[in-house]
Design a binder for these strands. Structure first.
Length: 205
DNA sequence: AGCACGATTAACT
DNA sequence: GTTAATCGTGCTC
């Protein structure tokens, strides 16, 4: 396949740039010796640079200072920031930008590729379209939970990383406001920091 | 110590 | 379209 693991310089850029560039890349999870993977088809940027983003955990909590939960976001680019929400769901993010800033990209949807049988089981026998078409769904399908929080995606012998995947043209990318921000104030509520592959069936509903 | 809420999903009507 | 599920986190008292 000639796939190549992405290295830290890829992640050490503005969150919006990384979010757009991640489309078409392959997220790989090594689980019990099996490769589970999917092509990234939907992402969201949180805190693009040094400017505050009141939708971002890192800027919302503790006056923008790190907390136990958000500390990873303030660390170096290329780490996994994984958090728990709604009492049952895990969310998989990638830290971007420079240390000291709470920048990250949320992976919202994948197109399943490798490990179909395993993903079907992890997703409780649901239909293929439901395996990874949402942030909590893909975390479950790839067995991602708190134990991977802070993992370095650039480590050559890790259990989760991203590969070069396929080339995506700018004309194939759509953008729009981020999902599920609740009572987040403007302008952050409407700023178009959600990116997806136009027309892909696995983009979240 | 207690409380409100969440970067969601699934199962309802 | 509506709502229950379910609990870690951060904030208030």
């Amino acid at each position: 396949m000639n796939e190549q693991q992405l290295t830290q310089p890829f992640y050490a850029r503005r969150a919006c740039t990384v979010a757009a560039d991640l489309l078409g890349k392959r997220l790989v999870r090594l689980w019990h010796g099996r490769r589970l993977s999917g092509i990234i088809v939907e992402t969201e940027a949180y805190c693009d640079s040094d400017k505050p983003d009141l939708a971002c955990h890192g800027d919302r909590a503790n006056g923008g200072r790190p907390t136990e939960r958000t500390a990873v976001m303030f660390g170096p680019a290329g780490l996994a920031y994984i958090y728990f929400t709604y009492g049952m769901h895990w969310m998989f993010n990638i830290v971007t930008g420079e240390p000291g800033q709470a920048n990250a990209v949320l992976i919202r949807a994948l197109q399943p590729d490798e490990g179909d049988e395993v993903m079907a089981v992890l997703r409780n026998g649901r239909s293929r379209i439901e395996w990874t078409n949402g942030p909590a769904k893909l975390a479950q399908a790839l067995a991602i939970d708190k134990s991977l929080n802070g993992t370095n995606l650039c480590h050559p012998d890790g259990v989760i990383w991203i590969e070069s995947g396929c080339q995506v043209a700018a004309s194939e990318i759509s953008t729009g406001p981020r999902i599920g921000l609740g009572q987040t104030p403007e302008p952050w509520l409407s700023i178009p920091w959600r990116y997806w592959l136009q027309g892909n069936r696995f983009v979240s509903k």
